[in-house]
Amino acid sequence: MNKRSHSIAFWAGVAVFLVAVLSMTQIVRNEYPFFAGYVILQFIALAVAWTILGGYAGYVNFGTNAFFGVGVYTAVALFKATGAPLVVQIAAAAVVGMLLGFGVGLLTLRMRGIFFSIATIALAIIIETFVMNWRFVGGAAGIQLQRPPVMAPFDSYVKMLFFVQAILVVIAVGIARYIQNSRMGRGLQALRDDELAAECTGVPTLKLKLVACMISGALMSAVGAPAAMYLQYADPSSAFNLTYSVSALAMSLIGGTAHWIGPVLGAILLGSTQQFLAVTISSEVNVLVLGIMLVLFVVGAPKGIIGLLRPRYRLRAGGKQ
């Protein structure tokens, strides 16, 4: 297939996906599938966003929770202050996430590999501490939120959030796919392999890293924004939970980071397993299963699911030396 028919197939797939999601919200009465499905969609979008920096550029970001939490609290603060609608909350979260991404991007000037990763963890802790002491949004005790009335054609807020999250998935995948097929994708791949060689071959490495950080950050924060409305509650230790970082990273690596479909597959696999286990056994087993699967994949399929499916994507699964 050539590029053009690839594109047609892709956007047709997107259309089918959105129509399916929308009709599901109209047909299915039980709310539980949406409650669980929302989480899976959220992780798909997070993992795809993570891959833009962690996979394409090879800068392993452990601060997914920082971006997610910033998204949650941007939405909370905005909602409490102005009662802004969900769309505005998400857009504002994306802007704040992008600014935070710019800051993280500047870190890449001096830090690579494990040092960069540790710095992103520190960033998450700093922001969480700040929010814990911010009375307006409830501080460490958290804050209860009253959902506004749901908009037509949806009959429940969770169903609407499910659809919103599906749109965020489409946006994240669309952007990741665009980057992957563009000049920028090749530049990121080059700088991941060898930053100095890339720079000496004409790749503006700093600019590309900054753009990747900003896009990845904006998406992660946007994904976090509806979470407060989903739970009708927000508190710092769950909004900035390290599980988001570990999950996004594990899902991307298990799926494979060379292609946008990798994090999608990884998130579907891990996300649904987690949801299943949370119902059948306990939510604590999640983390154990995540760890075991990550180990199995690192040993057995270092290039992730897509590495197993298509040997052409022989790319290293993230991480710089």
Partner: peptide
Amino acid sequence: ARSFQIPRPFKSMTVLENLMVGLDFAA
């Protein structure tokens, strides 16, 4: 343009793609 004392290929790419980086960004 330069080469390196110890070769520094873009090792996740094919040979052709290695060249495409320079053509994409510098020329």
